Simulated scan of single mutants.
Amino acid sequence: MKRVVIVGGGYAGVALARHLDAAHEVVLVEQRERFAHVVAGLRAIAGASGGRQLLLPYSEVLQRGTVLHAAATAVRDGGVEVAGKWMPADAVAIATGSSYPSPIKPEGSDLAGYLLGLDAAAEAVSRSASIVVAGAGAVGVELAAEIRHAHPGRRVTLIGRRLIPGPYRHALRRRLHRKLTDLGVTVLEDSLIQDAAGAPAAPSATYSPGQRVRTTSGIEVDGEVWFTAHGARPVTDLLPQETLDASGRVTVDEHLRIRGSRTLFAVGDITDVPEPKTAANAERQAAVAAQVIADLLAGREPRTHYTPSRYAVLAVPLGPRDGATQLPLLGHPIVGAAFTRRIKGQDLLLTRYRTTLRARA
């Protein structure tokens, strides 16, 4: 039986491992002891749910393969170095995902610190009168709405250059803007926070409790609590610089192989595939990579290739009962609260990923 080693047990890595598990010897290398369902972490930050339920065990995710909790230190065609030992493989896939400012994602493998960060954030929100979310992408929009929904009396301000940037219709942005305003969130678009020199703050900027800043549009904003909802960075430390593009993402071909390689693949947030970096797209990539790897290991030329999502889809819950979704259909129709609640908002996909990980509730 051919061996496939997958480095990274996030959304893409788990999906790829499950696709390949039945017919190959799969080794999933992941430092974290549990899967962190960070999509639902925004509700925990708002204090509307507990953080511990977001950590799901890996113990049942593979029925034949192995989950190895260790750090990969090198990868190349032919295998992976794990904890100082070389593990040969017929195919290797890198699915190490992206980092994000705390407390939205764990820092490295520190899940205890992640839980403490979620609890500290929820406590800070509960005792503060004003909260600022810097970053108006989907993460920032959802976080601002979760906080306002859980704490209707708080003053919540959302700051960003553009509401929901990316390949989405203005109709989606307009609907979300209206709903956020109705919820009581102050939305400041066309606004970036200035640093001390008057330039837009760097993507990695952090903000101090009680800080008062001026935006590039001249508006002064202060908040007792600040959250940074921008600055995602691909985690590509294992790969040589020549495999990365100018933004630090891995350059892959149409089969999701790292360019210049035959048996080394990349999936998920780390790739340079020109599409939004979402869990849904990561899982689409994993499904195609699994087919290509199966063909390769069977001695066949790949019979499929990956095409970036033609019809952009995005579900943006605004708390557990409201939101809007752009559907992946011709014309990009926009649907509202009932559909968004059903497909994501009700529990932020926690039930779905419990099923994926075969975790008991």
Rank of each mutant, 00 (worst) to 15 (best):
S217N: 15
G319A: 11
R249H: 14
G8E: 00
H37L: 15
A70S: 08
G47Q: 08
R64P: 01
V61H: 06
L115P: 08
V213N: 07
E301F: 01
S59R: 12
E242Y: 15
A48C: 04
R155C: 04
V213H: 02
V39L: 15
L20Y: 12
R173E: 12
V221W: 01
I104K: 03
Y11R: 13
Q63E: 05
L348I: 10
V14G: 14
Y168L: 01
F227G: 01
Q63G: 14
T355I: 13
R173L: 14
A298L: 06
T356K: 15
F227M: 00
V292G: 09
Q63I: 00
P165I: 11
Y11I: 14
V156R: 13
R321M: 06
L350N: 03
V7L: 12
G140M: 12
A196K: 14
R161W: 08
V27M: 12
H149Y: 04
G319Y: 04
I147C: 09
H170F: 11
A171F: 02
V132Y: 11
D245L: 11
A315R: 07
L314Q: 09
A121N: 06
P203Q: 05
E60C: 14
I6W: 01
A46P: 00
V292I: 10
P167I: 02
Y306G: 10
S130V: 05
S217M: 11
H69E: 07
I159W: 01
K179D: 07
T307D: 13
L264G: 01
L297I: 00
S98H: 03
L115C: 04
S208A: 11
H332N: 12
T325S: 15
Y11A: 14
L118E: 10
H37I: 04
A144R: 10
T304P: 12
P152S: 13
R303S: 14
E242T: 09
V313Y: 11
V5Y: 03
S247Q: 09
G231Q: 10
R18I: 10
G268L: 11
I219K: 13
A359Q: 04
R257P: 04
A196W: 09
I131T: 12
V288H: 06
L54A: 06
R32T: 05
A36T: 10
L143E: 03
V213Q: 05
V141F: 10
R233G: 00
A338V: 02
A136I: 09
T228N: 00
L349W: 05
V39K: 02
P165T: 08
K85G: 01
A289W: 08
A232V: 11
R249S: 05
E301I: 14
L264Y: 02
A144Y: 03
T325E: 11
D119P: 03
A229M: 05
G140F: 14
S130F: 04
Y168C: 02
P106T: 02
T278Q: 09
G336F: 07
R169L: 13
A95Q: 10
L115R: 03
R169S: 10
A93K: 05
A134G: 09
D119A: 07
R214V: 10
T263H: 09
L172R: 03
G166L: 12
V125K: 00
Y58A: 06
I334A: 08
R300V: 05
A324D: 05
L111T: 01
A121L: 05
E25L: 08
G117S: 02
S98L: 09
